[in-house]
Design a protein around this nucleic acid. Structure first.
Lengths: 202, 202
DNA sequence: TCCGTTATTGGACGGCTGCGCAATATCGTT
DNA sequence: AACGATATTGCGCAGCCGTCCAATAACGGA
């Protein structure tokens, strides 16, 4: 195959790994799959990554970090903390990309046995919490929210959303996507002392 | 190996599969692992189960259903809905058995690609929600809780708990077990119109 | 004690796994 | 045009996978 610069090749490997991971699941993505997806030999992958663990972590990070950056960017442009929270719920909720959330499920499960995946998953979860906490802190400072403990409130909102989304993605029919959004925003309004329905404007 | 009745053998297979699943993860549990754990040949397993998917589903069900029954039993003996909820939080929370919750993580992730595991996981999640919903309904009837929608409240409490526990088990150090319990009970008190600290009696 | 039933064996089948390494091909530079 | 650096190949290694099936062994009833 055509020769690439190390940076380009690394990118290509991660991109190919992601395609395979979405199709087969993170845990079942193999060196040969990724090589075939790139159209190269499998040996090439170990020339850039020490282990498959690191390839999978990089592939997961690619989507997860991008989604985070997208949400963070959109929230930063919001006119107020309340609006930022609306943006958060709109962009975080698995809408047409359940596959991304499925990758989160894969990552959480794999974390126990793949150190690099665990590190990435933990770091990104922490960043989501930080993003949310920052927004809450700003809202409290602006007098828009009433919240005694922004850090824990952020964890609660994030975890509720994850727990509910999990049911949709893993089990399909137990609850609907609309219920996830409605229940999570409702609980968050209670958490932050907002009037019912405040966070549902879309 | 010694000949067993079909019932005994099925049990032995499921028990052995569970031991291996706890050690290696649900997804990485193989026919040969299970056979070796039992001390029999691997062909025996397919004499009792059509596929590995069903073995894993049965192994997962063994722990999950037992934990559910244990909680349900203890909650049924509680003197009041409030006490029942206290029991719920005490028994649901991953205390010394993170391994059981890790199996839940495995099951949720595997659900996408293993029909039998998905069916079991979904059914048990629904039963947990039902157990919680029933308790809330009884509490409302007894005037102990104020809750307009017990069904969705049950989903919210369960999902919050799952989402928080997930961080503990998958990432280890992000939040502590104590925070999980404190935050989940706190949110539930808000959800049900209880005074702060009501659910923490232990 | 013999016999039919069936639990159990053990290996065949085709395919897959992560990893490592010598050989080769393709660059940019001289 | 020749060369050194290195990206890429292709395969070997040792082992694993789920599934299937003919042969065997152990049991209960006659």
């Amino acid at each position: 195959m055509k020769r690439m610069t190390p940076d380009q090749r690394r990118e290509a490997i991660v991109a190919a790994a992601l395609v395979v991971a979405v199709r087969k699941g993170l845990a079942s993505t193999t060196v040969r799959d990724v090589a075939a997806e790139m159209g190269t030999s499998s040996g090439l992958i170990h020339h850039y990554f020490d282990s498959m663990d690191e390839v999978l972590a990089a592939a997961f990070e690619r989507v997860a970090a991008q989604d985070l950056a997208l949400s963070a960017g959109a929230m930063a442009e919001a006119s107020s903390p309340v609006e930022a929270l609306r943006v958060f719920f709109r962009t975080y909720t698995p809408a047409d990309k359940d596959w991304a959330f499925q990758l989160w499920l894969d990552a959480w499960a794999e974390a126990a046995r793949r150190p690099a995946v665990q590190a990435t998953s933990r770091r990104l979860n922490l960043e989501w919490q930080g993003l949310l906490e920052g927004t809450i802190v700003r809202g409290v400072a602006a007098g828009a929210f009433a919240c005694g403990d922004p850090a824990s409130a952020a964890w609660r909102i994030l975890s509720l959303l994850d727990g509910l989304a999990l049911q949709v993605v893993a089990h399909g029919t137990t609850i609907t996507r609309e219920e996830v959004v409605a229940w999570a925003t409702g609980a968050s309004e209670g958490e932050l002392g907002l009037a019912r329905g405040t966070l549902l404007g879309g």
